[in-house]
Every structure is written in structure tokens, then in C-alpha cells.
Amino acid sequence: MTLIQREASPLQDEGIWKAWILICLAESDRIGAAPLSATQLHVTLYLANTLAALFSINRVRGRVLKRGVFPFYPDVQREIDRLAFSSVLEIEHVDFGARGHMNAHYALGSGGAAIHRSLLAHSPEAMRTAKLFRELISACFGRFLSTNSAIGPIDANYGSNFVLEGEVVDFSEWTDENKNLEVARYLIDRLRAMRPHADRDGVRLYCDYLDKALATAE
């Protein structure tokens, strides 16, 4: 493999991805959920993409390959590692996860906190993103994601029977088939009668659904 060939497929939206990874781990750190394993990190990033619209944020990527029991972005993994070896993040330890692969656990690095603060100070979008991750991590961790990252069969998008193993789950705005968001909005509507400000609870409601559904599946 030549250098040219390798560089032919750079990660799209690399900067946004890095920002999201940093914010995710910073919010995890704040809540005390860090470090996050690579698997947890990918699941969190996936959920954030599916539910971004609830916080008026543009998703980074609306597609993910359906392969295995949890969503994973292989091209993003390298950027996570790059952040880890550039002191933005740090690898606290490495264990062996699914199929015996090395599974690094990431925490906020020495340089990460400052960058995070700078991001939030200058970008309302970053503020909203931080809020999304805060909601998401607090809704997932200490619950299903602490013990079980295999949300694949339960997740509305990833687990759709209309998408076969090896096909891409597409929940971009062009296809308008973001079932996670539909579930969240359905739950919001159901809840609206009891709670006037149910809109902001969409993330939590969807994660509650995942938590309960996973528990039921086990």
C-alpha cells in the first residue's frame, strides 16, 4: 500500500469529529463517567448523531455500516487514537474487547481540557453539542452502556429489519428515515400531556427505551 493510496480516503469532517470526540470525553470526565472504552465511545458518538436534531445540531455523519452488534466507525477510530497520542486525550488502559481486539479506554488528556474550554467559549454550536453529550452520557452511563454496548438489535435505526447485515444504515436527512428520532419524538408526544417541557427530554426518553428494551432482551 502506497502513501498516495492511503491518503486517497481521508476522514470527511475530520475537525468536527475531533471536536465531538473531545466534547464527549470532556463531558464524560465532568460527570465522572470517563474513561470510555472505544466501544462505548463509538456507541455514544452514534447515538449523538441520531439524536442531534433534538438539540438543533447538525449531525456529523448520517450513515453507519451495520456489522456486528454495535455501531462502529473504523475511520474515526484512528482519529481517536491520534488525539490520544497528541495529549488531547489519553489512554488510561487497554484491554481486550470483542473478538480479542485491543480495546483502549480513553479519558481527557492534559491538553484536552483547555481546548474544550476554548471550544465552548467561542461556539454556540459547541455549547449545544456539549449539552447533547451531557444528556446522552448521563442517560446512558450508570445504566445500559456501563455494562452492555450491544445496542444493535434494539436500536431503532441499527436494528431495523429493512437493513441487512453488511448494508449501510442511512438516517441522513435525504432519506428522512431516522427512526431513533421518530421514536424519541413519539415518546415526547406521549409525555407532553404530563410534562410541559418534554421536548428537552427526548434524549433521555430514547435512552430509557434502550435501557428497558436491553434489560428485557437480556
Binding site: S9, L65, R67, F72, P74, D75, Q77, F96, R99, G100, H101, M102, G166
Partner: peptide, 15 residues
């Protein structure tokens, strides 16, 4: 799928 394959293979080698 190929990206995932490559990643998996590298993960195997790395392990």
C-alpha cells in the same frame, strides 16, 4: 465493509 474488514484485520494483527 472493506474499511471494516481492514480495521478488523489490523486489530487482529495489532492484538
Amino acid at each position: 465493509n472493506r474499511k471494516q474488514d481492514i480495521h478488523d484485520q489490523r486489530a487482529e494483527v495489532a492484538a
